[in-house]
Design a protein around this nucleic acid. Structure first.
Length: 440
RNA sequence: CGGAGUGUAGCGCAGCCUGGUAGCGCACCUGCUUCGGGAGCAGGGGGUCGCAGGUUCAAAUCCUGCCACUCCGACCA
């Protein structure tokens, strides 16, 4: 992509409403624009990142055996009356009336709808287990949206829903998501720690929040230091191996880890002092097992091997990709701007023409741009006639993992410069080697 | 929802107290000169001063009401 043909509105000064670093950088680097309190437009640059986050989330959901679908944002109120949550959910739910004065709502979550879909078609235990997920916009009318897309009213959520005949099966479904979440966050370049959590309005009695440690985190968290060194299961993990998964989950839940709501100071105190971690954290995922809370009132039953009808045991599993973008920036930036982890960087390489208008430099850049694209490398080519200083500042702000710097001085010796954004290491390489050096 | 605050050009701000033709920096456009880490000079475009009502010869400025947004707290993917 040529910067001159792209839409990347960079701000040199920080809009005053932005208090935390991820919000500031998302506005300055042209990822998002606020349209109302807690409601954001995702500009092309932000959309690229969001799509990459979603893709990684999707791949790990699929790997674990979950199946993607897509439910609507607008739901009928009657569905929520069935579960009893229409009144319980309160003002956080955005209620709408259509032209026929039917009660509708903008979905804050989808337990009711997925249960309705499930019960319409699944009648036998032989169709279980089943895990359906979608990635769809949600709306929760937060009292106080803040921190940009981190606590927005409209936000993108991956929500998965598992269905099993009994509690034992449901536990395995829960464990699958548990491991899939560990892998997802690791692939996004984040170190996540599962913590015992409150279930809130979703209900149920088994729940973990996946927390990223970050100074700007909203919640206070406590855990055992050893979690920070734990290896995340690799892609060969067998999701159908019940015992194997249970062992993994046991390992990741054996030591102390809790959010402030579930914090047990006495238990925490028993950890050796040098192993105690008391920090702030960002919640990036939350998984629940809630048994028959929805299947009973909504009559989502299957016939078991015994011939009787059983209310299915359910769980739900959420990840907020839009929040994750903010969380990743919180975890990965420096004083000059964003430092994208490679898997989700909007472009892999920024190509800087240091002297636009100089024939030799222009020709070298055009050739490199063509060759990089031909090699399948996402490249953002700064072909503007800005001065070099401005180009460097912009590139550092938008945080692409690699910068390919081309100017007349280097070219005179047949060289270009490759700079790695993380750490800032620079290296002169031969013009002819640049493209191959930048391959993944 | 309690407390605090802010609305003036795309962004950051001054002007308001003490009413008298709306300003500055950045960004943007044109030209020239520059050009390896946020260039210089010259010229230029862009604003119903959040909205409504009131006071006044005259309102960005004073008064009343409303709206939007931000921050702190209580609540949450």
């Amino acid at each position: 992509m040529r910067l001159s043909r792209y839409f990347l509105p960079i701000l040199r000064e920080t809009p005053k409403e932005a208090e935390i670093v991820s919000h500031r950088l998302m506005l300055r680097a042209g990822l998002v624009r606020q349209e109302a309190a807690g409601i954001y437009a995702w500009l092309p640059f932000g959309q690229r990142v969001l799509a990459k986050v979603c893709q990684i989330v999707r791949e790990e959901q699929d790997r674990s055996g979950a199946i993607e679908m897509l439910m609507p944002t607008i739901q009928p109120a009657d569905l929520w009356r069935e579960s009893g949550r229409y009144d319980d959910y309160g003002k956080e739910m955005l209620r709408i009336e259509d032209r026929h004065e039917r009660g509708m709502l903008y979905g804050p979550t989808n337990e009711e709808m997925i249960t309705e879909i499930f019960r319409a078609s699944v009648k036998s235990y032989k169709q279980l287990p089943l895990n359906l997920y979608h990635i769809q916009w949600k709306f929760r009318d937060e009292v106080r949206p803040r921190f940009g897309v981190y606590r927005a009213r409209e936000f993108l959520m991956k929500d998965a829903y598992s269905f099993d005949l009994d509690a034992e099966g449901a536990r395995h479904s829960y464990n699958k998501m548990f491991v899939a979440y560990l892998r997802t966050f690791a692939r996004l370049g984040l170190k996540s720690i599962p913590m015992v959590a409150d279930t809130g309005p979703i209900g149920g009695n088994l729940s973990h929040e996946f927390i990223i440690l970050a100074e700007t985190g909203e919640s206070e968290v406590f855990c055992h230091r050893d979690y920070l060194g734990y290896e995340v299961p690799d892609e060969k993990v067998n999701f159908e191996d019940r015992a194997g998964l249970a062992t993994l989950v046991d390992k990741w839940t054996a030591l102390y880890a809790a959010t402030s709501e579930k914090h047990d100071a006495a238990a925490f105190g028993k950890i050796p002092g040098d192993k105690q971690v008391s920090a702030r954290g960002i919640e990036v995922g939350h998984i629940f097992y809630f048994g028959t809370k929805y299947s009973e009132p909504m009559k989502a039953t299957v016939q078991g091997p015994d011939g009787a009808k059983h209310a299915v045991h359910m769980g739900s599993y959420g990840i907020g990709p839009s929040r994750l973008v903010a969380a990743i920036i919180e975890a990965s930036h420096d004083e000059n701007g964003i430092v994208w982890p490679e898997p989700i960087a909007p472009f892999r390489v920024g190509l800087l023409n240091l002297k636009q208008g100089d024939k030799a430099t222009d020709a070298a850049c055009e050739a490199l741009y063509r060759d990089l694209e031909a090699a399948g490398i996402d490249v953002l080519y700064d072909d503007s006639d800005e001065r070099s200083g401005a180009k460097f500042a912009t590139m550092d702000l938008i945080g692409l993992p690699w910068q390919l710097i081309v100017g007349p001085k280097g070219l005179a010796e047949g060289k270009v410069e490759i700079k790695r954004r993380a750490g800032g290491a620079r290296e002169q390489v031969a013009l002819s080697e640049a493209v191959s050096r930048l391959k993944g």
